[in-house]
Design a protein around this nucleic acid. Structure first.
Length: 323
DNA sequence: AAAACATGCAACCGCGTTTCA
DNA sequence: TTGAAACGCGGTTGCATGTTT
């Protein structure tokens, strides 16, 4: 008597997303912002469950995502953080703002496991990466540090009069701004790039998409639009479609987003932003009572150090010593 | 050239947690 | 207070692509 899968309803489409669907989803998010996923399928007409929409956005369409080619630094971060936190991919991803948890998980399961196994075989020592001794203690300590950091940043948020810039305390290395329609621009670039790649594939791909019965309703017009748009170097069709605020960064490629701006990093945790956006004043009013005690606790042990310090501490503690 | 096998990654599934009526 | 719905996360799968035989 398990829970029925949310996507088992009749008429809910599964499988790879088409460019048309991506456009529909991004268009909706441009207007309404991310979050409130349950209303997305009905509002957009997408034949997808809300879960699928959220996943597509967070793992693929969200601006600021860097794909492929993990750098040495990122790789080391992942190894150390995995040793420290275990398979808490979302937590690990919070230290790598341009990477999604799914991406990191995939990278770990494919590249890293292999690499580490190789290294372990070379050393002839069973390493502690998978489940190091005392991991629970380290995990607990890390969580405490993160919690302190979150509180610290919440306090500074409350104290600052600025309502434009907030920091998601659970997402290190990031700054965030209030959500506005203009911040969704780079999604268009993501899609444009996707479409380019999509069109580069053999025509059979296109054909397979077109023959999909689920697309029958709107294939004639939208597929043509995608085709013509992707067929031109400038993706003109989509330029017009995504003409909103494309001037500020339209020349950037997805990879160039590697230098994450506050604008793009906004999407690291959309719900949090929306939350802040809507309830910032409420927070200021409602959270004051317990903070004095928390402040005391925080500052008794000294100011919470920066994220770098946390990482360094964690890395020193892990003693993985792979590099 | 083609079959078999390996790899990488997007997407799905199940379940614990949170939210809300 | 409670139960249903939604959210979020980690594990897993399926398929397209690349490599080897």
């Amino acid at each position: 008597m398990g829970r029925p899968p949310c996507c088992d309803k009749i008429g809910v489409k599964k499988g790879p997303w088409t460019p048309e669907e991506d456009i529909m989803l991004v268009s909706f998010i441009q207007e309404h912002g991310p979050g409130n996923w349950r209303s997305v399928p009905s509002s957009t007409g997408l034949l997808r469950c809300s879960k699928s929409c959220r996943l597509r956005w967070t793992n693929y369409l969200r601006p600021g995502i860097k794909r492929g080619n993990f750098t040495d630094h990122e790789e080391k971060m992942i190894i150390h953080l995995q040793a420290l936190l275990g398979n808490r991919w979302a937590a690990i991803a919070s230290y790598l703002p341009q990477r999604t948890d799914n991406d990191i998980k995939n990278y770990w399961n494919t590249h890293m496991k292999k690499k580490l196994k190789k290294i372990q075989n070379q050393d002839g020592v069973s390493n502690s990466v998978s489940e190091p001794k005392g991991q629970w203690e380290r995990r607990l300590q890390t969580d405490i540090h993160l919690a302190k950091q979150a509180l610290c940043e919440a306090l500074s948020l409350d104290k600052s009069s600025s309502s434009l810039t907030v920091t998601d305390s659970s997402k290190p290395y990031q700054t965030q701004e209030l959500s506005s329609p203009t911040t969704y621009a780079s999604s268009a670039e993501n899609i444009a790039k996707l479409l380019e790649n999509w069109m580069k594939k053999s025509p059979k791909v296109l054909k397979s998409h077109q023959t999909n019965s689920d697309m029958a309703a709107n294939s004639s017009s939208s597929t043509d639009a995608a085709h013509s748009a992707a067929a031109t170097p400038e993706n003109q069709g989509f330029d017009s479609l995504f003409s909103f605020n494309s001037s500020s960064n339209s020349s950037q490629s997805v990879d160039e987003n590697a230098n994450l701006t506050p604008e793009t990093s906004l999407f690291r945790d959309e719900n949090m932003v929306v939350e802040v956006n809507h309830h910032h004043h409420d927070d200021q009013n409602n959270n004051q009572v317990p903070l004095s005690l928390l402040e005391k606790w925080l500052f008794d042990e000294g100011a919470v150090q920066g994220h770098e310090d946390l990482i360094n501490m964690s890395l020193a503690e892990t003693g993985v010593g792979l590099f």
